[in-house]
Simulated assay, not measured.
Amino acid sequence: MNRLDTDIIVDTDQGTDVIEMQPGQCVVIQCNHNIGTTFIRSLTGEDVSSCYRVSYRGELLPLAGPAAVKHVGIRCLDDGLYERLKVKEFLLFWMELHDVRAPLGEMLSQIGLSEKANEKIAKLSYSEKRLLGFAKSILHDPDLIVWEDPEQNLDLESCMLVRRMIDGLIQKNKAVLVTCSTLEQALSISNRIFRLTGSSITPITVQEQMELSEPEPGADNEELAAESSELQEQTPRLAKLIVKTEDKYVFIDPREIRYIESVEGMTYLYTKDAGITCTWTLAELEDRLKRFRFYRCHRSYIVNLDSITELIVWSRNSYSLVLNDDKKSKIPLSRGKFDEIKAIVGL
């Protein structure tokens, strides 16, 4: 199949926005939990009052309807399982229902449940149940896969399995649509991201910030530059970062900063206790933090090196840095930065 012919349609006050789904591509909808649930239920036809619609091969229809069930695989957060069945029995039941002859062992290995094939679903962990649900949604080889917040409350190992499943689906030329609650997570999954807020949906375009550079002193003013440098060395310097907000300057101890994020032209600085909106660009903050232990790990992120606790390799081209804050924030690491960060941390 060369073209999926599926559009996600959002009716807004300003008109209609269309997200075109392409084979071999993952689209991420970044939104809060309630909006994400409404979005998915609207696509499946459960919520007809909302503003989200799906056009499949030119016709509006619910993705869970009989006309689309062969081509679409959906997994929602609140979807249940037949917990009295064993893992193997559950998958065989759905394979028979869809008239599928897929290798069961390969599917069990893909979701990390090979050793629990004969265990009852009721005894599985929350993460294992979610993985089994994802397997159910793709065992009939659909063209379009829709997953609601697939990594919510999953353990790290299960998150890695989910990423591998998404990568595998993309390699098979499938179209994947997922929702997630954080931008960090969205950026580490795909580069095609849309932010959904109520009835408004906008693409998130991440632009590389221009590096700031100052002209070097010429031969005629070398003496003046030397005097200026000497004066700066004699002037007492505050060991804090001065952050300019909309109406004031805030003094922050750099050691308290976990990471800095740039989204749609706005810069957000996160400490242990709060998030601060800042008028400095990411490039300006990078320059001001040169004498501290901060690293530009991604074109949209600066991270405090002392806050990093883990380096996750999701796939060959997808990496994240896990921080030591309460949320264990996962910050995306650019592919080109992987070798640099390994050298910095001594790997």
Rank of each mutant, 00 (worst) to 15 (best):
K328D: 01
D17T: 13
S50H: 13
K129F: 04
I341D: 06
R296P: 00
V48W: 08
S200H: 03
G24S: 08
S228L: 15
E46S: 07
K123L: 15
D155S: 09
N173D: 06
A135F: 03
W280Q: 13
L108D: 09
R53F: 05
S228K: 12
D339N: 12
V250F: 00
Y319E: 04
T197H: 06
Y295R: 09
M165A: 03
S188K: 07
E256A: 12
L333K: 08
L60F: 12
S329T: 15
E222Y: 13
D143L: 13
T267S: 08
D253S: 09
H98C: 02
V162Q: 08
W147C: 03
W94L: 08
I19L: 11
R163I: 02
S300V: 04
L347R: 15
I260P: 03
R291N: 15
G24W: 02
W147P: 02
L91Q: 10
I312L: 15
R299A: 03
L285S: 02
K342Q: 15
L60R: 09
K120R: 15
I276A: 08
V345C: 08
L311H: 10
T245G: 09
A226Y: 11
R255L: 13
E310N: 11
V322N: 06
S320P: 00
V54Q: 07
A226W: 12
S320F: 01
A239W: 01
P62Q: 07
W280E: 14
D143Y: 12
R130G: 01
T277E: 11
G265E: 04
A68E: 03
Y301K: 12
S114N: 10
S334A: 15
I170D: 07
G112D: 06
E214F: 15
I8T: 03
S307Y: 00
C297E: 09
P254L: 07
V176D: 02
L212V: 11
G24T: 06
K120Y: 03
I312M: 12
R296E: 05
P203C: 06
R293G: 02
L4Q: 03
Q185V: 02
F338A: 14
E261T: 09
H140T: 10
N173F: 01
K342S: 10
Y270M: 09
G198W: 02
D155H: 06
R195A: 14
A64H: 04
D78F: 05
D253P: 00
G73A: 03
T309L: 04
D155V: 06
K290M: 06
L169K: 04
V10E: 00
